[in-house]
């Protein structure tokens, strides 16, 4: 007697199912496949994460930047990260945006809200990475800084216009990154540090 479910038929059906599910998954409009972000690197002292308190940061910033009008420090504790990882998260944030909006760098001008959105994504991506790897009650200190361009800095002219930057706290002190020109500097060497008007963490 011939059995209705031969091995051959089962194999054919399985192939059809594999091809079908492979097709639907790869063509789902609501799904993205992303490379993993670089693993987080935080600064530790005696085996514990090096932390700074939000209130202390606020006072330090007021002292360091007397022109600051707006300071928003939302969390209680912040941690230091390595400069290498800070740069790695910059690259990954750009990759994350480009994966969704591939034509973004072909535009004549970046979208109006680009810098602030980039910074918010970057800060949250860094915090997600840390929260998944370490058991630390502290936030990565990555925020948005606004400073007037009174002095030239590389490709940026001294036109007096306010510009937005990413600011991050690393083992080498604060790092300032200008997203459209991809220039990076330490806070100490940033030429317009005396014209900073706002920092939001």
């Amino acid at each position: 007697m011939k059995h209705p479910f031969t091995i051959k038929k089962i194999c054919i059906n399985l192939s059809v199912l594999i091809v079908f599910f492979g097709y639907t998954e790869s063509h789902a409009a609501d799904t993205m496949f992303l490379q993993k972000a670089p693993p987080p690197e935080i600064i530790a002292v005696s085996g514990k994460a090096k932390l700074l308190y939000g209130n202390f940061i606020r006072k330090q910033l007021q002292k360091r930047f007397p022109t600051l009008k707006t300071i928003v420090v939302g969390d209680k504790r912040y941690m230091f990260i390595t400069e290498k990882w800070f740069k790695g998260v910059i690259d990954w944030t750009e990759y994350f945006i480009t994966q969704q909006v591939p034509e973004i760098h072909q535009l004549e001008n970046l979208p109006l809200a680009y810098e602030a959105t980039f910074t918010m994504l970057m800060s949250n991506i860094a915090n997600i990475a840390v929260s998944k790897r370490y058991s630390v009650n502290g936030s990565v200190l990555i925020g948005l800084m606004v400073a007037k361009s009174e002095k030239p800095w590389g490709a940026i002219q001294a036109d007096g216009k306010p510009r937005q930057y990413v600011i991050g706290l690393t083992e080498n002190g604060s790092m300032i990154y200008h997203i459209p020109t991809r220039q990076i500097s330490t806070g100490k060497d940033f030429p317009n540090k005396d014209h900073t008007s706002g920092i939001i963490f």
Binding site: G74, D75, K76, R77, Y78, I97, Q100, V101, I104, P111, A113, T117, M120, L121, S123, N124, N127, I128, V130, S131, K132, V136, N137, G138, S139, V140
Partner: peptide
């Protein structure tokens, strides 16, 4: 991504600002 609420590192501000930024990127798209 299996992320859960945790003091400071992933709290209500992160839930809110991340959603805000993601919405902006979708609007650009």
């Amino acid at each position: 991504i299996n992320v859960h609420a945790k003091a400071d590192v992933w709290d209500c501000e992160n839930f809110s600002s991340f959603l805000n930024a993601l919405a902006t990127v979708r609007i650009w798209k």
